[in-house]
Simulated assay, not measured.
Amino acid sequence: MSEQHVLTERDGAILTIRLNRPDKKNALTRAMYNGMAEALSQAAIDESVRVVILAGGTDFTAGNDIKDFAAVGDRPATEPGAAFSFLETILDFEKPVIAAVRGYAVGIGTTMLLHADVVVASETARLQMPFTKLALVPEAGSSVLLPARVGPARANWWFLSGAPISGAEAAQAGLASRAVPDNEVEPVALEMAKQLAALPPGSVAETKRLVKAPHRAMVKEAMAAERVAFAERLRTSEAQEIFAAFLKK
């Protein structure tokens, strides 16, 4: 695990996985994806962990580090991406996941929320899926999960335009469970985690499984299709020109 950029904290039966790259608004590197996946994998087999909180700090995450996107041409097209491996890990995670979202939650910073069981967002958080602005496509099974969560019309506009969404709007649309003042995000997430941790863990896990079961095959199929399309788009001149221009700024 990246000791510097992905930290873990324990509070009884609650494990917090915290992104810790504040100078880059927690932009995600391959090492950070691997760190989150490793922490989740360890939590999955640790019976003393009952709930996981995903948190950042002032910002949740500004999304994928653009340098990683720009360097994709140096890696074999068949090489599994760290981001997609992390997404598969969180998809298969059987214990409750609560996301505490402050500041920026961009790209995968928004789509990963679709795999959290509870999302506590700052009213002033800025969620955004600017895939088309980067010449890319959605991932994380979001092409299926987001329309199901917020409705096709709203999802279409958010995807196609890449328009920003406030935490308050996300809660109103159903993408977030609650929107609270910024300084209350982590205390509220922790209190909700304590409520879940106090419940019978077998019952909680089975309830989560039943809720997700009807759409599981569809989500896995969507993630596989998105993965292929995303990899193809990363290697287009259209996308690489956008990344190069961004890095020159």
Rank of each mutant, 00 (worst) to 15 (best):
Q195Y: 11
V228S: 15
P130K: 01
V106I: 15
R126H: 12
A197I: 10
V188P: 04
L199A: 08
A44F: 06
T110S: 10
P214Y: 04
V228M: 12
E88K: 10
V137T: 03
V211Y: 11
E221V: 10
A121F: 08
E94H: 07
A37R: 07
S2G: 07
L234Q: 07
A62N: 09
G174E: 03
D92Q: 10
D117R: 06
R178K: 06
P80L: 00
N34T: 14
A83P: 04
G103Q: 05
A140W: 05
A77T: 13
E88V: 04
L91F: 14
E226H: 11
E79L: 13
V144I: 14
T58D: 15
V144T: 13
A116V: 04
V119Q: 01
V52G: 10
F86N: 10
R227A: 13
I53L: 08
R149L: 09
S203D: 13
L87C: 10
D46V: 00
A171H: 00
M32N: 05
F230I: 08
A245W: 09
L134M: 14
N34S: 11
F69A: 12
R178M: 06
D182F: 08
E191C: 03
P187D: 00
V120N: 01
P187V: 00
V119G: 02
K194F: 03
V118G: 02
L210T: 12
A148F: 09
V180N: 00
L136D: 04
K24E: 15
A225L: 15
E79Y: 08
S122T: 11
A125C: 09
A13V: 06
V118Q: 03
V150N: 04
A179G: 02
E88Q: 13
D11K: 09
S2T: 13
T236L: 06
L210A: 12
A83R: 08
N20S: 11
R10F: 00
